[in-house]
Design a protein around this nucleic acid. Structure first.
Lengths: 264, 264
DNA sequence: CGACTGTTTGAGACGCCTCAACAGATGTGG
DNA sequence: CCACATCTGTTGAGGCGTCTCAAACAGTCG
């Protein structure tokens, strides 16, 4: 409510050369040298608070954005008014590809957490495109990557059960958070159940039920937005829709975790 | 069966300048002059027969393709083996964007009909990207467009009823086929019920049922793959999930169309 | 403290899928 | 030419998974 669009734009005092995310930057070469002073066209380190919009559907596109820290979600408002979450974005990921064609954003993006985001002006984009073949390839590669990602999301929503969707979602988060596998992993969900549900084509109640079931199965421990992944192998099996045996009824286990040995 | 990948590659005898689709071409400027002889890098007028693959998921990407006539579908095979139709492509549309990043196609494309397709080598793509700002902008615009299209498909599959999906699908086809509205329109579905179903996240039986219902409502006449759209306004209403009154039971009408006056 | 939001859990409804039977079109071979 | 198989599309009956609706609870904020 009180947070709508409130942002702090810091002066460009930080050089790209010192950026702690320069390895993943769209324009890596600017981080090596900046002979033409192009990095002045970058609005660095814009801080957003949880709930702030980075841009809104329908806005004129001024920048491409790169998430340096924090997390965001992107969503579309359909004509009926309900909103659909189409993605979550973490450090190193690029925002704003949906507006390059029409110059108008087809989706909104807002911060799920306090986030630092780097703004990359359209002017700079055009300039680098024409002068810098490396940048160009990188840009096109990211476009292509985005399309492939959308394809996967389509499969996810089209053909998977609720349990598969949640399992896949969690595994995907594990990968993107860079966690190592095969041990107890703490996963901090920055998004709400409603966000997850919308993203997966479900309702919040269903997401909640599935997480509860996974907890009863001994796959994970749910504590609000903190998850402990106890058995990611089982999660993988569920993501492939291969539950190993008939599941116990909720009331049959009284909320206790099943001995893992029983499941193999 | 006997059609797998059988294609005819004609010599490059046709100039881009004479191409009947040059207005929609990705590289319009080649159609004006070809000073550098770049159009020799284009494999023109490759003919595909119904069922031929243009490329397969996993193939190394050699070309970008532009549909000159006919129709194609693109699909992904998921790990479980079932295939998912993710799009249909008609004259003027570009194929192969999914492989620019990895150089490996993430989807397959095959002809739904006898089709003529123009192959645009990756080499030429790279060359034009670096030398031609207009081409570059056009390419990026088409990428962006593809992403927005995927978003819309996500909404379609995520939040719509079966009837909405079919109605939206038909209206979309009407637009892309360039038909004028407000009169009886003949629509030739080149794809099977199974293709439509897969694309819309349904099963063929459901598509068939919805089409039958629409026919009973007096919205259209179904004759195999030939559709007559009788009342597209009603189709629009159904696409917004606003059926006007309780529907009559199938057996109540004995297959006769409802007098349209009853519906308003 | 109450108001509010987000989450969990349960009971019931409903939409779409599954399975099955059948019709029509198409192709094949004798 | 017909008999037969195959494939696509249609229609029906029943089941299941997810949604809807409702209630209760926890956590947060004023």
């Amino acid at each position: 409510m009180d947070k709508t669009g409130f942002t702090h734009l810091l002066p460009n005092k930080d050089s790209c050369h010192d950026c702690f995310k320069k390895e993943q930057c769209l324009a890596k070469q600017l981080t090596i040298s900046d002979v033409e002073g192009l990095s002045a066209l970058i609005s660095k380190n814009i801080k957003y608070r949880c709930g702030d919009y980075i841009y809104r559907q329908g806005d004129t596109s001024e920048n491409i954005f790169i998430v340096k820290s924090g997390a965001t979600k992107s969503l579309i408002n359909s004509v009926e008014g309900n909103e659909l979450v189409i993605g979550f974005h973490f450090a190193g990921e690029v925002l704003g590809f949906d507006a390059i064609d029409t110059n108008i954003h087809a989706s909104s993006v807002l911060a799920l957490d306090n986030s630092i985001i780097c703004g990359f002006s359209r002017q700079l984009l055009d300039r680098l495109c024409t002068t810098d073949a490396t940048f160009q390839k990188e840009l096109i590669a990211r476009f292509s990557h985005e399309i492939v990602r959308d394809y996967q999301l389509l499969i996810l929503i089209n053909k998977k059960t609720a349990e598969q969707r949640v399992a896949i979602f969690l595994l995907e988060l594990l990968v993107r958070m860079g966690s190592s596998r095969g041990q107890v992993i703490h996963l901090n969900l920055v998004m709400s159940r409603a966000d997850i549900a919308s993203y997966l084509g479900l309702v919040p109640e269903t997401v909640s039920r599935v997480l509860s079931k996974f907890e009863r199965m001994g796959m994970l421990v749910v504590k609000k937005k903190k998850l402990q992944i106890v058995n990611d192998q089982l999660l993988v099996k569920y993501s492939n829709n291969q539950p190993l045996q008939k599941l116990p009824e909720p009331n049959a286990m009284e909320g206790n975790a099943i001995p893992l040995a029983l499941l193999y």
